[in-house]
Amino acid sequence: MKISRKDFLRLSGLSLLAVVGKKAIGALAGKGAQSAAALPAVRVTTRWAMVIDPAKCLKEEGCTKCISACHKAHNVPTINDPRHEVKWIWKEPFENAFASQESAYTEAALQGKPVMVFCNHCDNPPCVRVCPTQATWKREDGIVMMDWHRCIGCRYCMAACPYGSRSFNWFDPRPYISELNPDYPTRTKGVVEKCTFCEERLAKGQAPLCVEACPEKALVFGNLADPKSEVRRLLDARFSIRRKPELGTHPEVFYLV
């Protein structure tokens, strides 16, 4: 049988397509099977959440202990240019963090005052919905996790996050880290990063670093699924607000009023 060069190229193109198609179908089918196996609903026993008391936080003016503890441990670079900065936890003026709550008569105690903000670890996270590679996903304990090995840097999650909680590495961050912590990786250029609720510490049974670093105990971390936990006790006892609850993302970071 004689094959012309054109036919050969056509055939090889078609076979390549067939291989790709089979792979894709296999991957999709595999996923289907997996989710079917997970069908018997597991009762959620852990749902990590944070309760913040802004009044306590404001007691010590200019305190940045939680920020520096977090950023140092997680090798978060210090980039002064706000266009390129990377931050996991930071202070945001009240009226920016709670844009819809703001009024000209907002309590003087809060007007212009900084509020600690970080990833809300939403129960219904838009960033997870849009990520094309599952480089960010929601764990069973509610943590919105990131896989920096898989992130392709499309920044769709940054467009999707209604809280501006995500940062992108516009270049290699290492030159901007004054003291490398070898126990935690840095990030490479071209990936998105954010707070992970210190999942590496939770794995060892420790509380997140910001919680530990706060001298006023203004940040309380705990399990919402446990009715006896401190976070539940606080939320039962006091009125709390969340950022942009109207978007249906169900943030798991609560601010006590």
Partner: peptide, 17 residues
């Protein structure tokens, strides 16, 4: 290998500290 783009050689970290 791109492992070292992110993962830190502890020796290197000690030196930079």
């Amino acid at each position: 290998v791109y492992c070292w783009d992110c993962h830190v050689d502890p020796k290197l970290a000690r030196r930079s500290a």
